[in-house]
């Protein structure tokens, strides 16, 4: 049954992707891309990747769509029809495709539990998570501790993107335009009432995902995206100014910097306590508790930076407004 559903879903994915490419209305293309993300998130879930599915749904379908739409507000909606000149593209694409298909003929059966990919490191991760970190979610253990340095890098990727968008969109405008501040949906009663009802639940769910990441799917990234989403929803309903009153730009900048500093700082404590960078086991007397403390701290840092960056980026796009 799941297999049939999977195949159905994968076909839908290809169809949606084709629709994204074919449509000439950019607004439609962006919405279809959101649907694509949601479908691929379901596929991930069927493939046992609950954490990835949650992230893709929150980041890909949610935040990404909002960013594209708020950028589209400053751009044109229609794609100009283009003619010809696609032969080289088709050729290079087909070559790559054929090469990939050629490689399939030789790849081992992924699903086989005895495939090398599943036998080399995975048993160690499972066992060590149980023994030395003692949290149920192996994903969180790998993300936070075994490969914590990658995650540190990831936080800085987010930070860099935030810095970049703020830098690019704070340049002086070429011509004099009046600053547009969005009115939101103040005059639309129904979306406003429903939205208001939703916000506390999204926020609560965000906090749950933040602090429950060690037990179930979730963690700082997903939580940051959800919390940011609830504030963005508030901004959409009540206007940008009200959202800025809740969390002003200065505070957001502080939030994104201090989250990254918190994460790296926890790592430095490892060095100061005579061990290695990002070694959490020296944070408390009992190494197992210390690992858990470390993971909670760095997840908090992740959540702070992601929330700060996503909100500042959103505000930057909205403030840039429509060009006249």
């Amino acid at each position: 049954m799941t297999a049939v559903f999977s195949i159905f879903l994968l076909c839908l994915l290809v169809i949606t992707a084709a629709a994204v490419i074919r449509t000439t209305n950019l607004f439609v293309a962006v919405m279809l891309m959101g649907i694509f993300s949601l479908l691929i998130a379901v596929s991930f879930f069927l493939l046992d990747a609950a954490d990835v599915a949650l992230t893709e749904a929150a980041v890909g379908a949610g935040i990404s769509t909002v960013l594209f739409l708020s950028a589209l507000a400053a751009l044109t909606e229609e794609e100009r029809k283009q003619a010809g000149g696609r032969v080289t593209a088709l050729i290079s694409v087909s070559i790559t495709g054929l090469l990939m298909a050629y490689a399939t003929l030789h790849k081992p059966d992924f699903g086989d539990p005895s495939a090398p990919a599943h036998q080399h490191l995975t048993p160690w991760f499972m066992q060590t998570t149980a023994e030395q970190i003692d949290i149920p979610n192996v994903i969180t253990a790998i993300l936070g501790s075994f490969r914590g340095y990658d995650t540190l890098g990831e936080v800085f990727v987010v930070l860099v993107a935030g810095i970049g968008v703020l830098f690019l969109l704070s340049s002086p405008r070429p011509s004099s335009q009046d600053k547009r501040s969005s009115e939101g949906l103040k005059h639309y009663l129904i979306p406003r009432m429903i939205g208001r009802l939703l916000i506390p639940f999204i926020l609560l769910f965000g906090l749950y995902v933040q602090f429950h990441g060690e037990y179930g799917p979730g963690g700082g990234f997903q939580a940051g995206a959800l919390i940011a989403a609830s504030i963005i929803l508030y901004g959409l309903l009540e206007g940008q100014q009200r959202a800025l009153a809740v969390l002003p730009i200065k505070f957001l900048r502080l939030l994104m910097a201090s989250g990254a500093l918190l994460y790296a700082g926890v790592g430095v404590v490892g060095i100061l306590r005579g061990s290695y960078f990002l070694d959490y086991s020296v944070l408390a007397a009992d190494p197992v508790t210390a690992q858990q403390v470390g993971i909670i701290l760095i997840e908090a840092g992740v959540g702070m930076t992601v929330t700060g960056v996503l909100l500042s980026v959103y505000h930057a796009f909205v403030a840039r407004g429509k060009l006249q």
């Binding site: 991760f125 075994f146 490969r147 340095y149 290695y276 990002l278």
Partner: peptide
């Protein structure tokens, strides 16, 4: 060779 987080390679980074 510096094991980050004190986790030996190839398990850690």
């Amino acid at each position: 060779a510096y094991p980050l987080g004190g986790w030996q390679a190839p398990f850690g980074i």
